[in-house]
Simulated assay, not measured.
Amino acid sequence: MYRFAVVIPTLNGGHTFERLLASVDDQILKPNRKIVIDSGSDDDTVNIAKKYNWEIVLISKEEYNHGATRQMGVKLVTDCDIVVYLTQDAILTNSETLTSIISNFKQSDIGAAYGRQLPHLNARPFGAHARLFNYSDKSMVKSIDNAAQFGIKAAFISNSFAAYRINALLSVGGFPSNTILSEDTYVAAKMLLAGWKIYYNAEAQVYHSHDYTLLQEFRRYFDIGVFHSRESWIREKFGKAEGEGMRFVLSEINYLWKSGNSLLIPEACIRTFIKLLGYRLGLKENIIPHRFKCLFSMHKKYWIRKNMA
Rank of each mutant, 00 (worst) to 15 (best):
I35Q: 02
Y221N: 12
G115I: 04
N94K: 10
H210W: 15
L11K: 15
V172S: 02
G239I: 11
A90C: 11
L86I: 03
S108W: 01
T185D: 03
V226A: 06
D211V: 04
G14M: 02
L132Q: 14
F218I: 04
K293E: 01
K75C: 05
G278Q: 03
V46Y: 05
S41K: 08
D25V: 02
F105M: 06
E231L: 09
I265E: 00
L263G: 02
N307E: 14
F161M: 12
K50G: 09
E96S: 12
V57F: 03
Y114N: 02
I59N: 06
S41R: 06
T16A: 09
D89V: 01
K258A: 03
N307T: 08
V206D: 06
I8S: 04
N32F: 12
A155T: 13
R305V: 09
T179N: 13
S143H: 05
T185I: 15
V46C: 12
K240C: 09
I91H: 02
A113N: 05
V226S: 01
R19E: 12
R131H: 00
N122Y: 11
Q88A: 11
S100H: 10
N167Q: 10
H290L: 13
R235L: 12
R219F: 00
G127R: 03
Y302T: 06
D184M: 05
D89G: 02
